[in-house]
Lab assay of single mutants.
Amino acid sequence: LEELEQFARTFKQRRIKLGFTQGDVGLAMGKLYGNDFSQTTISRFEALNLSFKNMCKLKPLLEKWLNDAE
């Protein structure tokens, strides 16, 4: 759980530094990986307001997006 919290904080910082909005991330993930995510989902991930199971599902996709975006 602590690792997920740390990743969520780091993800938000890096996303902002790269100049992407939460909506940009959701749209890009849909185009790149075929998984559409709303701005609300990205927001809830960053705020740790998703279930642990959903956080675990999203983490690898967000890590991949972040690596591809950098």
Rank of each mutant, 00 (worst) to 15 (best):
P60S: 08
G19C: 02
Q6E: 10
T41C: 15
R44L: 12
K57M: 14
A8W: 02
F20I: 07
N67S: 04
A8N: 02
C56D: 10
A28W: 08
G23W: 08
F37G: 03
Q39S: 13
L48I: 11
N49D: 15
F20L: 13
N54W: 08
L32T: 08
Y33F: 09
D68K: 12
S43M: 12
F7D: 01
T41Y: 08
G26W: 12
F45Q: 00
A28P: 01
R15W: 00
I42K: 00
P60M: 04
N35Q: 07
N54H: 15
R44D: 09
R14V: 06
T21A: 05
E70R: 05
E2W: 15
S43K: 15
F11C: 05
K64P: 03
K59V: 11
F7S: 03
K64I: 05
F37L: 10
N49M: 08
T40Q: 14
P60F: 10
C56M: 10
E46I: 00
F45M: 06
S51N: 11
R14K: 14
V25S: 02
I16A: 07
F20C: 08
A47G: 13
G34V: 05
N35H: 06
K31W: 03
V25Q: 00
A47M: 11
M55T: 04
R44E: 15
Y33W: 07
Q13T: 13
D68Y: 08
I42H: 00
R14P: 00
E5A: 13
T21E: 05
K64S: 08
Q22D: 04
M55E: 02
L50N: 02
S38G: 14
G30F: 13
F20M: 06
Y33K: 09
F52H: 04
G19E: 03
F52L: 12
L50W: 04
E3N: 06
R9M: 07
K17S: 13
C56V: 11
I42F: 02
Y33V: 09
S51P: 13
Q22K: 10
K57G: 13
G30S: 15
G23Y: 04
E5T: 06
F45V: 02
L58W: 13
G34C: 05
C56G: 09
R14W: 03
D24G: 06
L32G: 08
L48E: 14
G19K: 07
F37S: 03
A28Q: 15
L18T: 04
L66F: 03
A28D: 14
G19A: 03
F20Q: 08
T10V: 11
F7Q: 01
K31S: 11
R44K: 14
G30V: 10
L48D: 03
F37Q: 09
R9W: 05
E3A: 06
Q39P: 14
M29K: 00
N49Y: 03
I16R: 09
G26D: 15
G30I: 08
T21I: 01
K31L: 07
E70Y: 04
T10G: 10
E5D: 10
S43L: 08
L66P: 01
Q13S: 13
L18W: 04
N67D: 04
V25I: 07
R9H: 03
F37P: 03
L18Q: 10
K64H: 15
